[in-house]
Design a protein around this nucleic acid. Structure first.
Length: 762
DNA sequence: ACAGATACGTCTC
DNA sequence: CGTATCTGT
């Protein structure tokens, strides 16, 4: 979403450049962008609940590039869901669900590659996924911060308060939050598109003195944003026209005149829309963010007196101070608020102290934002260092400010009312007035500000002139992808056009690789046939530590398989063990969700063994319609937990589940008795029954949903279930249940090896 | 010229 | 999340 079409709209305010222009600076990164792209390469592994660090390595490639240019990266992550965004969240969940549904249909129709592509689109970046990157970065002394709510607002805060000089993202929303410098579309070479706030007026077709951030924000909200859909027929261009012509400073009142100003007679502006508009505006202006220097949650800009408490809550609700800090550090899962990690920046600092020589220019960028030694730079420093890359003379011109030390003589209330504190209160330089953080919300710009912005324009041009080939981009929209760009981009000038060729080659090869993925990533010889045991000690699935989980590729045993077709290739067995005892979930919220799932499972999937066992596995062989349904249900168990966030939605989905599932119940039971395993896509539904304590049951339910997902995926990939000879009866739940999945003939053909998977529940 | 619906890509080499 | 493209006003 974001603001549809905003980036092309801002063409005139943007320029192509390289991130090395910011050498010596601090950069805040919207980690979601990198994670989302990185997860693409290992989407299937993540869905199977397997451990993978492929996406972490992908992100580190960007970070290493930044470090190479002597840039300090700060990774920013999304936090809790904002009430204001609930509508768009529901929409996204629906599209994810639809994608998953389509993917399953495609795979079952035999179009595996297409289906898998769709499955990738259905993946969601959880905190658990992000935490792997966070942990890795913390080990490498790379700063991470988790926003109380949206990363966008947090990034803007870091930029506005001068903690970060520029923000790297793909999301156009950042401009709305008042960021000064945003770097879009950065590639591994550091090439990208820079948009500066000081140049926004160019795209708005306004003179600098006419332009202010209020107008810009109004235009974007009118055109439709995440917090408020647009009025029918209003896009960026119409919104700009209206705001340019409007003279009324009271936007709530002014909105009634849209229809007449734009000659759109049929346009009606309701009271609800105008109120929602104000609410959206507040959410952009005053969203809750975390200040790493004060170590507390603050508002992006200080709320004015005309804003009610209710309106503020809409833009984020404050957490308990300690919990807020833990959330910012990443120790806390934003959706459950459960502690999942134990990073403590103060402990690590003592260790780091020896390595860092304070006082040297370059060490400045290596000090953590969480450190008491952290120093805030001024704009001057940035400008100088920008012009003198690799120059040590910047040290002289460097103007630094001491960080606010927590438990200082300053009272918290003083700090709270002034988010500009990192800059103003502790400034030791004369030009600090120019650094006033929230200039962007001033409706009138004074002479001083205009002159300073003019200086910057000069600076800008100077840099542009120094650029290796600025004329290449001068008259082009950098957001429009052109084939010719591939050959003329500065990064490619040195490489000839080899990159383009490479890219095309990749495209051709891609389909072939996709076919091989099944082989190499799941069940293959792992490139080295001698490696038979994959230790998964550090696997984390669904927040559960599977410390004792092991995947073994073991040779064929006499009783392990009886394949229909004689196949000369050796059989390999992959064994997956799920342990149920290592689960500790104490959060009521979590429990409530699990209870919901549990009820759903008990109510809808009853079978003959109901009374006697703690849990059981139900074999379900079924017609195509039911197969679709159940597979989807298995896959969406985790997303049901999200759905439950919204009570109405949850009830609806539960209702649907009940009615749909009960229709297949009878069939299930009869098929269970017959024990039919002929069909290729057999699936297990896992069921919890009220016989042990509620808590234990809930935990099992959680664990079992994972099991169900793994199993359904197995069948999706062409494994058929088979009962092992050493299977222990269901009535003794403390013992293990082992199931064997045998690769279907088609799968064997595709893999080139006979494979079976053993799945053990303990 | 603009708004909105639709389709498709993001990675790995 | 984005871009590219088509269609209707």
């Amino acid at each position: 979403m974001g603001i549809t079409g905003l980036l092309p709209f801002l063409e005139k305010s943007s320029k192509r450049t390289n991130i090395k222009e910011f050498s010596g600076s601090v950069v805040a990164i919207d980690s979601y962008c990198w994670l989302h792209k990185g997860v693409f390469s290992c989407a299937e592994k993540l869905m199977m609940g397997q451990t993978t660090n492929a996406y972490v390595l992908y992100c580190m490639k960007y970070i290493d590039m930044l470090l190479k240019y002597k840039i300090k990266p700060i990774l920013v992550f999304d936090g809790r869901r904002l009430p204001a965004k609930e509508h768009t969240e529901i929409k996204r969940r629906q599209t994810r669900q639809i994608n998953r549904q389509k993917a399953i249909e495609l795979i079952q129709m035999g179009q595996v590659a297409e289906g898998r592509n769709l499955l990738k689109r259905a993946i969601d970046i959880t905190h658990e996924i992000a935490l792997e990157l966070i942990k890795h970065c913390q080990n490498e002394n790379i700063d991470c911060i988790i926003a109380p709510y949206e990363a966008d607002a947090q990034l803007a805060y870091l930029n506005i308060s001068n903690i970060a000089d520029v923000v790297i993202t793909e999301d156009s929303d950042l401009t709305l939050f008042g960021c000064k410098k945003i770097f879009f579309k950065m590639d591994f070479n550091g090439n990208g598109v820079l948009i500066e706030q000081d140049r926004l007026h160019l795209a708005m077709n306004m003179r600098p003195e006419e332009f202010d951030m209020n107008k810009f924000r109004y235009i974007c909200i009118l055109s439709g944003c995440d917090y408020l859909p647009s009025l029918p027929g209003i896009g960026l261009a119409k919104a700009r026209k209206f705001i340019s012509r409007n003279t009324d400073h009271n936007i709530h009142r002014a909105l009634t005149r849209i229809g007449s100003v734009l000659n759109m007679k049929s346009l009606v502006v309701t009271q609800e829309y105008r109120d929602a508009f104000i609410l959206a505006d507040i959410t952009f202006k005053h969203q809750l963010v975390f200040c790493p220097l004060q170590r507390k949650q603050v508002r992006l800009s200080p709320p004015t007196t005309d804003i009610t408490e209710d309106q503020l809550q809409y833009a984020g609700k404050e957490l308990d101070p300690d919990l807020a800090f833990q959330l910012a550090l990443g120790n806390c899962d934003p959706s459950t608020l459960k502690i999942v990690h134990n990073f403590n920046p103060d402990k690590i600092e003592r260790k780091r102290k020896r390595d860092v020589e304070v006082g040297q220019t370059l060490t400045l960028i290596y000090i953590s934002i969480w450190s008491t030694k952290y120093k805030l730079k001024t704009k001057n420093h940035i400008l100088f260092s920008k012009n003198a890359i690799n120059s040590s003379s910047t040290a002289k011109k460097e103007l630094i400010m001491q960080r606010n030390v927590v438990n200082d003589e300053n009272t918290p209330s003083e700090l709270h009312n002034n988010p500009t504190i990192p800059c103003n209160k502790f400034s030791e330089c004369q030009d600090s007035d120019e650094n006033t953080i929230l200039d962007m919300y001033n409706t009138s710009q004074d002479a001083k500000l205009i002159s300073s912005s003019e200086e910057k324009v000069e600076e800008y041009l100077y840099l542009a002139g120094n650029n290796t080939s600025p004329e290449l981009f001068k008259f082009r929209n950098p957001f429009v992808k052109r084939v010719s760009d591939l050959t003329t981009s500065p990064s490619v000038l040195f490489n000839g056009n080899s990159r383009r060729k490479g890219k095309n080659l990749m495209r051709i090869r891609r389909t072939i690789i996709d076919e091989n993925i099944v082989e190499s990533k799941y069940f293959s010889k792992q490139d080295d046939e001698k490696i038979n045991v994959l230790d998964l000690k550090n696997t984390r699935i669904e927040g559960v530590d599977l410390k004792n989980t092991k995947c073994n590729i073991i040779p064929e045993t006499s009783d392990s398989i009886c394949d229909i077709r004689a196949n000369h290739k050796p059989l390999e067995t992959l064994s997956v063990v799920n342990h149920l005892e290592n689960i500790n979930s104490d959060k009521e919220f979590d429990d409530a969700l699990l209870l919901g799932q549990n009820e759903y499972l008990t109510n809808t999937c009853e079978d003959v063994s109901k009374k006697s066992c703690n849990y059981s596995l139900t074999e379900v062989s079924h017609s195509t319609i039911d197969k679709d349904y159940i597979l989807d249900k298995c896959l969406s168990l985790s997303s049901n937990m999200e759905v439950a966030n919204d009570s109405i939605n949850y009830e609806n989905s539960l209702q649907n589940n009940l009615s749909e599932c009960s229709s297949i119940k009878d069939q299930q039971i009869s098929l269970h008795k017959k024990k039919i395993f002929k069909k290729r896509s057999s699936i297990n539904l896992v069921k919890g029954v009220n016989s042990t304590t509620k808590r234990k049951q809930l935990h099992q339910s959680k664990q079992l949903s994972l099991v169900a997902r793994q199993q359904s995926l197995l069948s999706m990939y062409g494994f058929q279930k088979k009962v092992c000879s050493h299977r222990i009866p269901q009535h003794t739940p403390t013992h293990s249940n082992t199931f064997q999945y045998v690769a279907s003939p088609e799968l064997i053909w595709r893999l080139g090896v006979r494979v079976a998977i053993e799945h053990t529940l303990r």
